[in-house]
Design a protein around this nucleic acid. Structure first.
Lengths: 222, 222
DNA sequence: AATTGTGAACCTCTTCACAGCT
DNA sequence: AGCTGTGAAGAGGTTCACAATT
């Protein structure tokens, strides 16, 4: 009821939330899911931090960008915080997703359980290879990626996963953007470009393993 | 020949290189591979930056941590810089890798071409499910993950990929560490802990897609 | 007594801007 | 004239430390 504290409470005041904060929120979300599973009622920032290898101050700061969800002296109500984070991340609803590129990785992603469990439904899979059209993966049929625009609209898809070779990636992205896709998870090992308003995240497994090789090669004292 | 500039040239003086820098080096490395493919002789920081959606200053700064590889007025020699980055990242040699957890994702990783192409050889795959033991994936046979210690040593493996469910992840990591593994790429959707000297990187695809859902949900005025 | 929420201090990473080579 | 290498400035993210609250 204090006019000062109030106006920063309601979520997403466009205060520029860092990428790192968003990723950590996903972790807190999982921690809370697991806490619900073990019938925990309250949880402290300290405990959330310990489970995720972070500091308690970091956890509190991250949450504070979106509101004051805890109670001083008591901690956070598990169910309550879970619900709040779910709204912040947009996990209180479902999202239709398509996958372009049904190779080795694409195929695994179609079957990747965690996407569904979090409300990301793969509704459409496409490939440019005509030999694959009509084949089924799970209960989906591989479509011609030339028909992207039509299919994406029909299925009301806003998120796309790109799992094509580097050489085809930008072309695929352009077509997806043209079809109205607003967010792209890119597994191709190149940087892709999309206009403002289309969000891109890169997931490059080769880069990750190379970081390990760097660490082993430059194993410094300490 | 100048004593001042010299002593920071030779790599890995343990000057604490950031994770972000290492990831970008991997990108530059790919950019250079592709430049070699198109018979380019020199390349500027400006061009490397453009291809990767970065600034030229960033590229030069990243490289400067490891030495002065360019020539003022001319840019970088492509083959030369490629060789240098390859040494920095430890890609001038090969690495033996094992995968624990041959489910949906693990199976795709066994067949993931880019690992091999960069010198990461999958030599051993393991699972705790006895029904899988003896099955083959590619030209590897699935082994009992109880035999981890023995197998890891026999195959001289230093890098492990963990693709097991969250509930099993920490136990698997502990066993890998005990077996002498020095670097772990973790696909399990939980934070895992390893002693100092063992490097861990997390690759959590669910978190990545949740970042997209956050962006779409909080589509702010920019 | 316990634990949050947060301004301020601190630290790290990125960008600027220009001297120094080619 | 062109482009690198880098110290310094700037921006951004993390941790500290403590008042506020239960």
């Amino acid at each position: 009821m204090n006019s000062r504290t109030q106006n920063k409470t309601r979520s997403s005041e466009a205060a520029k939330i860092s990428d790192a904060t968003v990723k950590r929120l996903s972790k807190y979300y999982r921690t809370l899911q697991s806490a619900i599973g073990s019938n925990k009622v309250t949880i402290s920032s300290e405990e959330i931090a310990r489970i995720n290898g972070l500091t308690a101050a970091q956890v509190r700061k991250d949450l504070s960008f979106f509101g004051a969800f805890g109670r001083r002296g008591l901690g956070y109500n598990v169910a309550d915080l879970h619900r709040n984070i779910s709204r912040i991340l947009g996990l209180h609803r479902t999202w239709n997703v398509c996958i372009v590129g049904v190779g080795n990785i694409g195929r695994a992603l179609v079957r990747f359980k965690q996407f569904q469990e979090q409300g990301f439904y793969i509704k459409l899979i496409m490939d440019s290879d005509s030999a694959k059209w009509g084949q089924t993966v799970g209960d989906l049929t591989i479509e011609n990626s030339e028909d992207c625009k039509e299919l994406v609209r029909r299925e009301k898809i806003r998120i796309a996963i790109v799992a094509v070779p580097a050489s085809a990636a930008q072309r695929v992205v352009d077509r997806l953007v043209d079809a109205g896709i607003k967010a792209i998870l890119n597994f191709a090992p190149v940087s892709i470009f999309a206009p403002p308003g289309v969000y891109v995240r890169n997931e490059n497994m080769a880069i990750e393993i190379e970081s390990l090789s760097f660490a082993l090669t430059n194993k410094s004292r300490k």
